[in-house]
């Protein structure tokens, strides 16, 4: 996952991740990419479009 510079670490993505793979720190996000099934829910829920999938 690519986290854009304008991410505000609100944690909405972590709340909707069905597999609980996102750790939200005060000023960083850590994705557990290994367990990710590419459902894309985190990407579409972001209020400021700060997440994009790696190509």
């Amino acid at each position: 996952m690519i986290v854009k510079e304008w991410c505000m670490y609100c944690g909405e993505c972590a709340g909707v991740c069905p597999r609980c793979l996102i750790e939200v720190r005060e000023i960083s996000l850590i994705f557990n990419e290994e367990g990710c099934k590419d459902c894309g829910i985190c990407v579409s829920s972001c209020p400021v479009n700060a997440l994009t999938k790696e190509e």
Binding site: E12, A14, G15, V16, C17, C20, S45, C46
Partner: peptide, 24 residues
């Protein structure tokens, strides 16, 4: 908060469905 990871670590079903999460 809305991240609700602690509950999930403890086996509770706190993940929020996208249709139930308001983006404020």
């Amino acid at each position: 908060g809305p991240e609700s990871r602690v509950g999930r670590w403890g086996g509770l079903k706190t993940a929020v469905k996208p249709k139930d999460m308001e983006s404020g």
